[in-house]
């Protein structure tokens, strides 16, 4: 549904996107993570036709983003990172205005507005001024506005920023519901726990390029079964320095973190490598108290990719 190939975009000589590639399948809820300045917002703006790209290709639903902007706009709903509202309009007026802007008229407009009010749970407040709504309600209203014309694809740039925990939970549920309705979504966010909860896959972006984890993956599978991540926690008796030396001298193994009596170790390869490392540690005289496989959460995987500066 979304196909980006070698996309590049520069601003005054600074490369915001540098050959970024991304493929999002139909109906997926796809996350996009990376540090500030990684190029997430630029990617969203290019896909939403707000910015032209310098080179590369981008297609949404088979349409070229650069050349078929008007058709693209019919298919996408874009929620900017800091969405604005017209404070002096009523909730209904706000929705009617954007329904007009998407060329929805007459009965279609009324139906779309009623549906948007229901989706945002603002039916009771439709006559209220937008100014009177809480931040979370405004965010719901803007998301409902984004859905007015029934887009096939949603581009959501930091949709949960500034929301309180309850509003974030509601947003997650709403996004899951939209996915169930068949809408494809690309979401950039810094709130990794939210992405982990709702996304099927997550793309890593750093310095405008596809970032990769230790195993060379630029897209992390969150829902589909995947190869085990071979990270182990090892508790040792006494000084951990000898254990670190053994780990780092073993082929395919390296120490990620060290603290008093504890190591976090990354092991590349199959079970044989894990067994070999354990044997080497024991033979090397390390007193092992615990040797435990650890499944990494998104937060930890993110930290490993971006703290180590591995774009």
């Amino acid at each position: 549904m979304i196909d980006v190939e070698q996309m590049s975009k520069s601003f005054d000589g600074t490369r915001a996107l540098d050959g970024f590639t991304l493929h999002v399948g139909t109906g997926e809820l796809f996350g996009l993570v990376g540090p500030n300045g990684a190029g997430k917002t630029t990617l969203m703006k290019v896909l939403s036709t707000l910015l032209p790209m310098d080179s590369g290709t981008a297609q949404i639903d088979g349409l070229n983003v650069n050349g078929q902007a008007r058709e693209i706009k019919r298919r996408i709903g874009y929620l900017p990172d800091q969405p604005g509202v017209y404070q002096d309009m009523s909730v209904r007026e706000f929705l009617e205005f954007f329904a007009d802007a998407f060329q929805l008229t007459g009965a279609r407009q009324r139906a779309a507005v009623e549906r948007a009010l229901e989706r945002s749970s603002l039916t009771d407040r439709s006559r209220n001024s937008v100014e009177q709504l809480s931040f979370g309600m405004k965010q719901r209203l803007v998301l409902a506005k984004t859905l007015l014309h029934d887009p096939k694809v949603l581009l959501l740039d930091e949709p949960a920023t500034g929301l309180d925990p309850l509003a974030r939970i509601e947003l997650r549920e709403q996004l899951k519901q939209l996915q169930a309705e068949g809408i494809t979504m690309l979401i950039s966010s810094h709130i990794l726990s939210d992405l982990e909860d709702i996304c099927t896959q997550i793309a890593l972006i750093g310095s405008g390029r596809n970032a990769t984890d230790a195993e060379g993956r630029s897209v992390l599978q969150l829902r589909a079964p995947q190869a085990p991540v071979r990270i182990y926690e090892i508790d040792v008796l006494g000084d951990s320095a000898p254990a670190v030396a053994v780990v780092n001298s073993t082929a395919g193994a390296r120490t990620l973190e060290t603290s008093a009596g504890r190591l976090v170790v990354e092991i590349a390869g199959a079970d044989e490598q894990v067994a070999a490392l354990l044997r080497t540690l024991v033979v090397g005289g390390v007193n092992i108290l615990r040797f435990d496989h650890r499944t990494l959460g998104l937060e930890e995987r993110y930290r490993m990719v971006f703290r180590e500066g591995r774009p």
Binding site: L50, K73, R74, I76, P80, Q82, Y86, F102, V142
Partner: peptide, 16 residues
């Protein structure tokens, strides 16, 4: 004012 209240992006991504 559209830039200040951050509504210009919504206008430009509509069919206007």
């Amino acid at each position: 004012i559209e830039k200040e209240q951050r509504t210009l992006a919504s206008l430009l991504t509509s069919l206007l």
